[in-house]
């Protein structure tokens, strides 16, 4: 039985301790905003925050996340108010299909905590999430907009 702190709530899941956090979040806890894209920490669709650090949850066993503060895309807006990154995403109309955007938003939220005004080079180095629809130009625009907000 894994006990997790997800979006401020204590949740339990009856799973093998080696199960990647991603599948516990999705299949056991039913929080499907976090997506599966590759399973090998390449694409970033599954990005969540563990103690504030952007982490690709497909490659973290649930046992390693116990006792830590996990935030998923569902936990980003507070009392229905979008975070400034989410708001910038809406204002710039970033998403196309939207599948990668949960991970994108989580990765960018963590980046802006570390670097409130990132340069383009810093964005390039930090945001390696894959988007196949090709929203990168809007992502960059929205990151700068969120940094100014």
């Amino acid at each position: 039985m894994a006990t997790l702190n997800v979006n401020g709530k204590t949740m339990t899941a009856d799973v093998d301790p080696r199960t990647p956090l991603l599948w516990v979040i999705r299949d056991s806890l039913g929080l499907t905003g976090t997506k599966y894209g590759c399973g090998i920490a390449q694409c970033g669709c599954c990005t969540v925050h563990i103690d504030g650090v952007a982490t690709r949850s497909c490659s973290v066993p649930v046992s390693a996340a116990a006792g830590k503060k996990i935030t998923t895309i569902e936990g980003l807006a507070i009392d229905g108010k979008l975070s400034k990154v989410q708001q910038a995403w809406v204002d710039s109309e970033v998403p196309q299909c939207g599948y990668c955007q949960s991970g994108m938003v989580m990765a960018v939220s963590a980046l802006l905590k570390d670097k409130p005004k990132p340069t383009n080079d810093e964005i390039d180095a930090a945001i390696t999430n894959i988007c196949r629809c090709g929203t990168y130009q809007q992502v960059r625009e929205a990151i700068h907009a969120a940094a100014k907000a």
């Binding site: 299949d27 039913g30 929080l31 499907t32 905003g33 976090t34 997506k35 599966y36 998923t72 895309i73 569902e74 980003l76 807006a77 979008l82 989410q86 995403w89 809406v90 109309e93 970033v94 998403p95 939207g98 599948y99 955007q101 949960s102 938003v105």
Partner: peptide, 27 residues
């Protein structure tokens, strides 16, 4: 004009095939 589904896409609510949940569902 703007799409109306953008908020769902940035809050994790946009429901893809992978997200389908049905009672008693197996994977």
């Amino acid at each position: 004009l703007k799409r109306a589904d953008t908020i769902d896409k940035v809050t994790g609510k946009h429901s893809f095939g992978i997200d389908v949940k049905l009672p008693g569902m197996m994977i």
